[in-house]
Design a protein around this nucleic acid. Sequence first.
DNA 1: GGCGTATGTGTACGCTCGTTCCTATGAGCT
DNA 2: AGCTCATAGGAACGAGCGTACACATACGCC
Lengths: 187, 187
Amino acid sequence: MSADPTTVRRPRRHDPGRRDRLVDTTLDVIAAQGVATATHRAIARAADVPLGSLTYHFGSLTELLAAAFTRHVDDVAARFDARMAAAPDRAAALEALVEHLTGDLLGSQRDLVLAVELYVAAARDAELRAVTQDWMSRSRRSLERHLDPVTAREVDALVEGLVLHSALSTDPMDAAQIRAALLRFAG
Amino acid sequence: MSADPTTVRRPRRHDPGRRDRLVDTTLDVIAAQGVATATHRAIARAADVPLGSLTYHFGSLTELLAAAFTRHVDDVAARFDARMAAAPDRAAALEALVEHLTGDLLGSQRDLVLAVELYVAAARDAELRAVTQDWMSRSRRSLERHLDPVTAREVDALVEGLVLHSALSTDPMDAAQIRAALLRFAG
DNA sequence: GGCGTATGTGTACGCTCGTTCCTATGAGCT
DNA sequence: AGCTCATAGGAACGAGCGTACACATACGCC
């Protein structure tokens, strides 16, 4: 019994909530480097867990990506709907929309990047496209609290364009310009 | 029979035929399967050339992708500017814009997919972002033939949103709805 | 003709990837 | 206590990737 282990095992046994943490870390990796670099190994490194842990908790990489994007969409859609629900009338709803766009979405490079990455990934993967469509329909439903369906749909498309424009342009529109565009359209 | 120097054209040291064909095939592969699957081997297979031919003509895969997207942007931007240049007034320009969107872009699944793929790739690659920005600025300049700069910029963002919306939605807007949205905005 | 160079071709290397598989551990149950 | 099985851990495999490189061919030029 003189075998005193110089090889210290990691004390990291039984980690409840690891699955949740992996989803969060996946979003971090996507936001930081893009969905193309969100590999099992990159996520495992970022979360400081062994590689096998990922395939244990998620049957495939696509399943993990879908879980991550779903969480993000739930988060953004809930925040947006809360804003719309709190607006007393149409004018307030439009201001809340501007606030959501310029504050929440465009103010956070993270949310912006995640949106574009989701757009891209959804273009090729049916499972992810369902997540995108869910986002679109929830967004439209929130808008329809104060806008007629036709306007809601058009505003939704304009918002998508503004997001893309802000993400890719070197000379993006500022908050005042975005406000002017939205009010001109639906005000 | 020796060649007569007066009738023999200057020999082409570099035959551009294959290089051009490779660029076209690259666009085909991207449109069909996405930029993520546009590998050297996939393009070589599609163009029916050996693998080494790609690295001979293009120093790297990114260089090839940039050449392909550049060609596509040149093509679309030229078509659009021709439409704008031919429009006699603002109203005709808006109709031409609607026609460009619903006819050229949205009518062709290929152009639609290529646009989204470029958006995505540009979000991560600086060289491709330059191509996207060139597209945006050319598009805006074409619009400014008949629209004031502020409106041109907003219309450009709306158009991007409509393209994305059409590419990803299961229930996309039809030509009449797109026309109504654009005219409502800028008409 | 012969030569030199631009162009074309096929193979191989080193790497990263998703996924599988076997072993180890410890928390909860009896 | 002892058992059991969900969880944790790490190594390995086969495939596909970008790229390098050595070798083949064609053709203008002398």
